[in-house]
Design a protein around this nucleic acid. Structure first.
Lengths: 332, 332
DNA sequence: CTGTTAGCGCTTTCAG
DNA sequence: CTGAAAGCGCTAACAG
């Protein structure tokens, strides 16, 4: 194991100089920098993470805490989010790890805090009043949430601006003359935001309950085709189900009225792109959003003790109208 | 931050004594042990991971390196494997993290090796002659592979015993009188093992190419129902596709001959259980297998310098016959 | 712009 | 059975 002492000797400088060319925390002449760098190269020196952390260097590692990583119905969103964070963090010169947590056992969270080897943590899939936020906040560990939940104190997060997202979708439909809109989602309640926007636009909403799977959407389509409904457009909050729904007509010859408009809200840009049925969407730039979350995290870690300012970032996404069933104006 | 010094003072013992009650590496009288323990309790002392690693304590952390965590078609297997490892490792008193790696960029792997903060690494989804194995082996970092690949040297792994798995499935079918069997898988080649077992049983195999998705299986069923085939049984290597295939008949009224036997090989026990169509399977105890992998990893880390013995563990799984289409004997 | 040095908190000899 | 003390490799004052 070569240490920074070996490198220093090899380069003919002091040990601290080596540290400083590595951290860039103080000016170094080009000459010595070059010598040190080549010495590092030659010796195959690898910085020792534990030592650096112990000595007070900020841990160049961010931890993603994701519950239900594998239990949620398969949707591509989670993957895009993780990928985005990983890349965002990496671009800032940090690395990230995923810290698996049991869903209903905080001992894992505890352990992470104890071990204290990560510079900060990114939370995903937060539950209502998620206890982890409280723990992290109490321990004064830098964290940012990808998403939001109400906990009674302020914290850093980046999230989709659902207000704007819903507005965009409903306004679009409204401008096409739609007054009664179906909402594809799991469960029977209507998101408050959606409801209030609809009411301000004087539009009526009906719930179309479905699981977020290709098959769920397919079955929904089948059910609808056999029923009498009087909404003229659909807004979907489920990505996988939307694809199943939209493809039901083209692939399995389920008869869905051609003039039924369909706008997906929680769907990745490229996911919509790849789907055979052309689904309109208020694009969810999950990857980019997560990437910015990663960068924000690093920024916060680096700003360190200077007082963690609470930052928020909201993402909307453009309305991408891909035509097909979604372009139809109301005829009936 | 309370340190072991604080604890020592509180308990009225030396610092090293605290360390030793924690590690159990030397005999401690019951009295002092109790005093120390309660001092730890009182002070809320948390051991500092970085310091412990730096001082030469073995890192109580194992790293899972999983490529393609999110790009592979959604199957429940990966999730079960990760969960199993996490739990297995945890039971041994270690913790695990997932180290995201880009698919075709070894810099992530490198970084992990450099930082050198994890006691060992578990590799999943290894490719043919996976470079990571070489890196890990060169660096003499303890690792075990969940799965197998040929790399030219011996290493620790736990894997399914496909030989036995294939044997079980084909023998079962053979005993029912089946002589020509379809094989659901991606791609057109037949696994060598499967082929040789079939030939020793004098059975003929035909490939049924499908993507490993519910829909892939569904479409396969549709295609088959419209074609003339003369195999009387199917062995499937794809979990998601198998479910789609089997449910095609019950849910979407695709006509599949009732006497067509179906045995799934890469399907979780509970996955088969939950599927509506009762699919026979040589159960893949992915969770349990992964759990044992995690334990093996810890064992190897702990055995430490004593020379890393190469261990292998093979899992088969029982044939679970759930009836329905799979119980049919050959009639035609 | 560079070197010296005192720790970070823990593990582990060595010496009772 | 228990203590004292020497580092592990690095960071960040402090001192030029």
């Amino acid at each position: 194991m070569t240490t920074r002492a070996d490198v220093a000797k090899l380069a003919g400088v002091s040990e601290s100089t080596v540290s400083y060319v590595l951290s860039g925390k103080r000016p170094i002449s080009e000459k010595t920098r070059a010598r040190v760098l080549s010495a590092i190269e030659q010796s195959g020196y690898k910085s020792n993470y534990a030592a650096s952390v112990l000595a007070g260097g900020s841990p160049r590692l961010v931890t993603m805490m994701i519950s239900n990583l594998f239990t949620t119905p398969a949707s591509r969103i989670n993957g895009a989010l993780v990928d985005g964070i990983v890349d965002g963090v990496k671009e800032s010169g940090f690395h990230s790890v995923i810290w698996p947590v049991s869903n209903d056992d905080d001992s894992d969270v505890d352990l992470l805090l104890k071990s204290n080897f990560s510079g900060g943590v990114i939370l995903m899939n937060v539950k209502e009043n998620d206890q982890r936020l409280h723990l992290l906040n109490d321990q004064k560990i830098p964290f940012v949430v990808l998403g939001r939940t109400e906990v009674g104190f302020d914290y850093n997060y980046v999230d989709r601006d659902f207000d704007a997202v819903f507005s965009k979708a409903l306004s679009e439909l409204n401008s096409f003359g739609h007054r009664h809109v179906g909402v594809i989602k799991s469960g029977k309640d209507i998101p408050v935001l959606l409801k209030s926007i609809a009411s301000s636009l004087k539009m009526k909403l009906s719930i179309l309950d479905s699981s977020n799977t290709h098959q769920g959407g397919y079955e929904l389509a089948k059910k609808l085709s056999a029923s009498d409904f009087d909404y003229t457009a659909i807004v979907s909050l489920l990505d996988a189900a939307t694809i199943g729904f939209a493809e039901a007509s083209s692939k399995y010859s389920i008869r869905i009225p051609e003039d039924l408009s369909l706008i997906a809200l929680n769907m990745l840009e490229d996911q919509a792109e790849k789907s055979e049925a052309k689904i309109s969407t208020v694009a969810f730039e999950a990857y980019a959003m997560a990437e910015s979350c990663g960068k924000m995290m690093v920024e916060i870690i680096e700003s360190g003790l200077k007082g963690a300012s609470k930052k928020h970032e909201l993402w909307t996404g453009e309305l991408v109208n891909r035509g097909s069933i979604s372009q139809a104006k109301v005829k009936r």
